[in-house]
Design a protein around this nucleic acid. Structure first.
Lengths: 148, 148
DNA sequence: AAAAATATGCTCATCGGCGAATACATACAT
DNA sequence: ATGTATGTATTCGCCGATGAGCATATTTTT
């Protein structure tokens, strides 16, 4: 299972080294796609099979007749890439994905069960804070109701 | 599976070279048709068989009224073309299709699972931005249809 | 302090894209 | 009917970009 948070740098050529702890599970070839909420998703090829199947299943054939479907599929497939992990564990981030989330300098690499996410480190920090605050508030709320 | 985004040039003779990553799957002969939303669709001949069958399956689940359907089919069939991929992986875009989406100079070539789309690069960039903004909402919507 | 992980810079090789030139075929005109 | 001209296709080769690998440096962890 992929868990944990790592901060790594992106080199001039848009390469980023995967955390050692992830390498085995991710394997030699991965799929990288735009993610939701300002990040990129990385899937193993196996996981990607599942994901893409779910994406295309719901409306069977001719999903291109539905406008929503078209948009979303262009987003998920059109901007996905199959990427090789090099011999020292790095991957090359395609430009169009890098630009999308403003990757540069440092990136946060997050394990989320069966996928990995890549964030601009600053954006990640902010996001984290927001989520943590919400968590506290949520706790308060629940606590005050005597849920204990 | 056809995924990814590529920017290629169209030469003086309306030829455009297919991304290397697509060539094997597309094969030597393809069908190119007007697409929805300002682009062209490219199908493998096999995929086109499926699509056209579904389209002409007279009263299947297509919710079009008959007249609409006639129009739509004229649009899809009447303006489709069977095109050969030349020896170095280029295809010739028929004028009437080229003009339709204002192809010139640079084109964006997008893999969307089982079809390829051709866009005027500028138009694609604009479209992309719009979709980016909607992506999270779209995901919610599609996700609520039973993704898990 | 030692070992493991990560970073960074450099070089080399390969591949793809693009343009130019050539070969081919067809049509037209003399 | 033959030669020429025009448009179209295919091939070739160069140029640039890009990716892969390596080797060294730095940082972190235990």
């Amino acid at each position: 299972m992929l868990i944990g948070e790592y901060i790594h740098t992106i080199d001039i050529k848009n390469r980023i080294s995967l955390p050692v702890k992830f390498r085995k599970e991710l394997g030699k070839k991965i799929i990288i796609t735009p993610g939701l909420d300002q990040c990129l998703f990385i899937f193993t090829t196996a996981e990607w099979e599942k994901v893409s199947k779910r994406l295309s299943d719901s409306d069977s054939d001719l999903s291109f007749l539905k406008a929503d479907k078209r948009s979303f599929n262009r987003f998920m497939f059109g901007r996905a890439a199959e990427v090789e992990v090099d011999t020292i564990g790095r991957i090359l981030i395609p430009d169009f994905l890098k630009d999308r989330i403003g990757l540069q300098g440092k990136a946060a690499i997050i394990g989320v069960e069966d996928r990995v996410e890549i964030w601009n480190d600053k954006v990640w920090m902010q996001y984290r804070e927001v989520v943590e605050k919400q968590a506290d508030q949520l706790a308060e709320k629940l606590g005050s109701k005597g849920t204990a």
